[in-house]
């Protein structure tokens, strides 16, 4: 299996209402907004004007880079960010819209106005860590966090950067949003480095992964004549990340109750799926699961490798082949 698409993860940072440990963190169970105290987590100096999703991103990034080896050696122009978010600005936008409908534009706060554009959530992150290589904001439903790893990894391979912070960040939906009960809050940040073929992993590597995204048109899923094509597409995705269509790996699925989810389950073979986790209204859960598989893999069988698959009712898919670094006792 070649190293194409493979990235080394050298730092992991997680911030959720359920805690900051990747193995136990939980972005769901809509928590009261007081779970994250801005001044103790970030300090003062205007952080409170950042929408919560931007604050979570900053806090998670600080945790991720804390123990990263060799970060200072990477010039600013070679450091980058790829951030996934579906609803990071949703509540802010809804609130601003209510203000415009019920009052007028003069009542909008200038300090929060830039965040109508969801990519501005990453602005302070880039300023704080000097990320001048590039900053990408991905918004594909459910998979944007995993996609950040994929796109970040591709950028490393294409020579655009030597280090990418790949992240997912979400905030609670507004109270009247239909999916408020599935809100995600919190952020996950992974520090990615290039894996050169034949070379050892960079120092401090937590593990490696290869992520690919794909799409199964829901219209094709609902079409009896499209079933074979859909099945082929899903198995092609699995082959692209693991090298084989029927990998001998635990398979963890993050998905909903949709027809797309059903097609994915069928293609994987229900017996080969080890766990199914319900997706939330955002892209944090799949990336958090990736972080957990890297940092806290089961030790009872195999070497901790796993396959993670996320599938969204709108057709977006992602697959991540995860290889945590072996602990000395099992190497």
């Amino acid at each position: 299996m070649n190293s194409a698409g493979w990235v080394a993860v050298t730092g992991v940072g997680v911030v959720t209402p359920g805690g900051d440990d990747p193995s136990t963190a939980r972005p769901g169970d809509p928590a009261p907004s007081s779970w994250f105290d801005t001044s103790s987590r970030l300090g003062r100096r205007g952080y409170r004007y950042l929408p919560p999703a931007a604050q979570y991103l900053l806090a998670a990034a600080r945790r991720a880079v804390e123990d990263v080896v060799g970060l200072a050696d990477v010039p600013a122009a070679r450091r980058a960010a790829a951030v996934g978010s579906n609803n990071g600005a949703a509540t802010l936008l809804a609130g601003m819209d209510h203000t415009l409908i019920e009052q007028d534009v003069e009542q909008l706060s200038p300090a929060t106005a830039p965040f109508f554009a969801v990519n501005v959530l990453a602005s302070r992150l880039c300023a704080e860590h000097g990320l001048k290589g590039f900053s990408l904001t991905l918004t594909s439903p459910l998979v944007a966090g995993l996609e950040a790893v994929e796109v970040g990894g591709r950028a490393l391979a294409a020579g655009r950067a030597d280090m990418v912070l790949a992240a997912a960040t979400e905030d609670r939906l507004s109270d009247d949003a239909p999916r408020v009960g599935q809100s995600e809050q919190g952020a996950v940040v992974l520090v990615l480095r290039q894996v050169a073929a034949g070379r050892a992993a960079p120092p401090g590597t937590v593990g490696g992964c290869r992520v690919r995204t794909a799409f199964v048109p829901p219209g094709l899923v609902h079409d009896p004549a499209g079933a074979r094509q859909v099945g082929r597409r899903i198995t092609a995705l699995i082959r692209a990340v693991t090298g084989t269509e029927r990998p001998d790996l635990p398979v963890h699925l993050v998905t909903d109750e949709s027809a797309v989810a059903g097609a994915v389950m069928t293609a994987l073979g229900p017996d080969s799926v080890s766990s199914v986790q319900p997706s939330g209204a955002g892209c944090v859960t799949p990336l958090l699961r990736l972080a957990r598989e890297l940092c806290d893999p089961p030790r009872d069988d195999g070497d901790g490798r796993s396959l993670l698959v996320a599938a969204d009712e709108g057709g977006n898919l992602a697959a991540a082949y995860v290889r945590p670094v072996r602990t000395p006792s099992t190497s």
């Binding site: 990519n119 918004t139 499209g226 094509q229 597409r233 057709g315 977006n316």
Partner: peptide, 20 residues
Amino acid sequence: AAHLGDRLRATGANTSVSNA
């Protein structure tokens, strides 16, 4: 992006990028 992918029955990757 997803709507376009569905409409076109496009089975490659599908990415929504929102760099303003």
